[in-house]
Simulated assay, not measured.
Amino acid sequence: MWDWGSGLLTITSRDGHDRVQVAAIGEIDRDTVATLADTLTIELDRYSAPAVLCVDLGEVTFLAAAGVNALLVGRRYAYRRGVSYQVVNAAGIALCVLRALELDSVLLSPSL
């Protein structure tokens, strides 16, 4: 497990047998999105092919367009590597944003 981030966004990452869980805590906007995007890329590159990359948004307090883009880019990168990609626990503003953009059915998985 490791933590990475700035004052507005912290990312924690845990790996299991064939599963990597990345949790975002705080605000995801244009000033903090690189932390999330870099973490998703690093975690996918760090393993030859984890079966699942799970992004937990349960503690996200703000989700801007830049954050949504990072989630979509992460999904595409995972797909190209043959890795299942799940976004879980979206609530509050994060869930509202994904629903407003009609991306809830594309990105969200049931909470694990």
Rank of each mutant, 00 (worst) to 15 (best):
100 A>Q: 04
100 A>M: 08
92 G>Q: 03
107 L>T: 03
95 L>Y: 07
107 L>D: 00
84 S>H: 07
93 I>Q: 10
87 V>L: 07
88 V>N: 05
91 A>N: 11
83 V>A: 00
84 S>T: 15
100 A>R: 13
95 L>G: 02
89 N>A: 11
98 L>S: 02
88 V>A: 11
110 P>Q: 12
110 P>D: 11
102 E>V: 11
85 Y>G: 00
84 S>I: 12
100 A>L: 14
100 A>N: 09
95 L>A: 09
112 L>K: 07
102 E>I: 03
104 D>V: 02
89 N>Y: 03
96 C>A: 15
93 I>P: 14
97 V>P: 15
97 V>K: 01
94 A>M: 10
111 S>N: 14
85 Y>K: 01
108 L>R: 09
101 L>S: 14
109 S>E: 10
97 V>S: 02
105 S>V: 15
88 V>H: 06
84 S>W: 03
84 S>Q: 07
92 G>V: 06
88 V>G: 04
111 S>T: 13
90 A>P: 01
86 Q>A: 10
108 L>S: 07
84 S>R: 10
83 V>D: 00
98 L>V: 14
91 A>I: 14
98 L>W: 03
102 E>A: 15
109 S>L: 06
95 L>T: 07
106 V>H: 13
105 S>A: 14
108 L>I: 09
100 A>I: 09
109 S>Y: 11
89 N>I: 04
97 V>I: 03
93 I>L: 05
103 L>K: 08
106 V>D: 12
97 V>T: 03
99 R>L: 05
100 A>D: 06
92 G>S: 13
108 L>K: 05
92 G>E: 08
110 P>Y: 03
111 S>L: 09
94 A>N: 06
89 N>C: 09
97 V>E: 01
112 L>I: 10
92 G>F: 02
104 D>K: 01
89 N>L: 03
99 R>F: 13
109 S>G: 05
96 C>R: 12
109 S>N: 12
91 A>Y: 04
109 S>I: 01
83 V>E: 01
103 L>T: 12
97 V>M: 04
86 Q>N: 10
95 L>C: 08
96 C>H: 15
98 L>D: 04
92 G>Y: 04
89 N>G: 06
87 V>S: 02
110 P>I: 05
85 Y>P: 01
90 A>M: 04
106 V>S: 08
101 L>I: 12
100 A>T: 14
86 Q>C: 04
91 A>T: 12
90 A>K: 01
95 L>P: 02
109 S>F: 08
105 S>L: 13
83 V>H: 00
104 D>F: 07
98 L>C: 05
100 A>G: 11
109 S>M: 11
98 L>M: 07
105 S>N: 13
86 Q>R: 14
87 V>I: 08
96 C>P: 15
97 V>C: 09
88 V>I: 10
85 Y>R: 00
86 Q>G: 02
101 L>P: 08
91 A>S: 14
92 G>K: 02
102 E>C: 14
98 L>A: 02
88 V>D: 01
83 V>S: 00
